[in-house]
């Protein structure tokens, strides 16, 4: 039973990280209809940039984190401006493939810039743990859950209470109508990518911290597990991102805890995808996604 609770806490924490990644994804998808594979690359880059600022350049951790958030928001906006904006109106699969190209480029750039093996991202909470009634809980997981809660709260306030948020919602609803109302559609595009870049940093730092703080270029691939998360939640639903993230996180950690052994191998790596396929067969637009209406 202790094991179960321990795994549950860890699962929710990991799920929270996937939810953040998925959030960045959903925002971009909602606004521009771009299925953004490069989100995984932004997560990877975010973690390494934070390391660069806090480690070699000696900034205090939270300063480094804040600066990394600004940096990645900038990188994402530039990427949007240069390769996504000119593709508006082109077939959606072309945009999707472009973001795959971006993912490849970002991952290889990270591998080329930070070549030294065994880099460690030091966080204030490190690898400390609490022991409550036999259940071991890592500080990293508590920090993660707290951050995820704050981030999502901030996002929903931004989304529903601010002009920029309204602009994004209007653009997501109907691009042409929004433009006709004088809402700067292109700014909504920029803002959505900036959000994607910003949340990616937090996700990257949290994922690294959970994994024992060693930085890995494989982070981009791990971040792809947020894809099943947001598909389970529904591509265009920020709330669904949380649900999907937690489902995927808990599934993955439970599979790791109970199913992985010498004969079954690494079930955790495929469990999210299996759950995704099952959910999709049941609800083809995910749990909270808008059902596509076909018009003839």
């Amino acid at each position: 039973m202790e094991k179960f609770f321990q795994l549950l806490v860890a699962g929710i924490a990991v799920g929270g990280i996937y939810a953040i990644i998925a959030l960045g994804f959903v925002v971009v998808y909602k606004v521009s209809g771009t299925f953004n594979f490069s989100q995984g690359g932004l997560v990877l880059l975010g973690a390494f940039v934070t390391y660069q600022y806090s480690g070699p350049w000696g900034m205090p951790f939270f300063v480094a984190l804040a600066l990394a958030v600004v940096t990645l928001a900038g990188v994402a906006m530039v990427a949007e401006r240069v390769v996504i904006r000119p593709m508006i109106g082109k077939p959606p699969f072309a945009m999707l493939l472009i973001t795959i190209g971006l993912l490849v480029i970002i991952e290889q750039l990270v591998r080329s810039i930070w070549t030294e093996p065994g880099l460690v991202l030091k966080t204030p909470w490190g690898n400390d743990r609490y022991d409550i009634a036999g259940v071991t809980i890592r500080h990293a997981d508590l920090w993660t859950m707290g951050t995820v809660t704050v981030l999502f709260a901030a996002f929903f306030v931004f989304f529903s209470r601010t002009d920029a948020g309204l602009g994004i919602r209007a653009t997501a609803f109907d691009q042409e109508a929004a433009a006709a109302q004088g809402i700067p559609v292109s700014r909504a595009f920029s803002v959505s990518w900036a959000i994607a870049g910003a949340v990616a940093v937090v996700a990257g730092v949290m994922l690294t911290s959970r994994g024992g703080s060693a930085l890995s270029p494989g982070l981009g691939l791990i971040s792809l597990r947020a894809l099943p998360a947001m598909i389970i939640g529904g591509l265009d639903s920020p709330g669904g991102a949380i649900a999907g993230g937690v489902i995927v996180g808990v599934t993955e950690i439970m599979a790791q805890g109970y199913l992985d052994n010498d004969t079954t191998g690494n079930v955790a790596t495929i469990a999210p995808y299996v759950v995704m396929i099952i959910v999709l067969l049941w609800r083809p637009s995910g749990l909270f996604g808008t059902r596509a209406v076909e018009r003839v």
């Binding site: 299925f35 959606p92 699969f93 999707l96 792809l224 894809l227 099943p228 598909i231 591509l235 004969t263 079954t264 191998g265 690494n266 079930v267 790596t269 495929i270 995808y273 299996v274 995704m276 396929i277 999709l280 067969l281 083809p284 596509a292």
Partner: peptide, 28 residues
Amino acid sequence: PFALRFRGNYLVVVTLALLFLTVYVVEN
């Protein structure tokens, strides 16, 4: 048959799942 039920983006992720499932089977 998945391509019938899911279109576009959803299908792309299903094909990605196929790759990971294949790798899993190969390893085990």
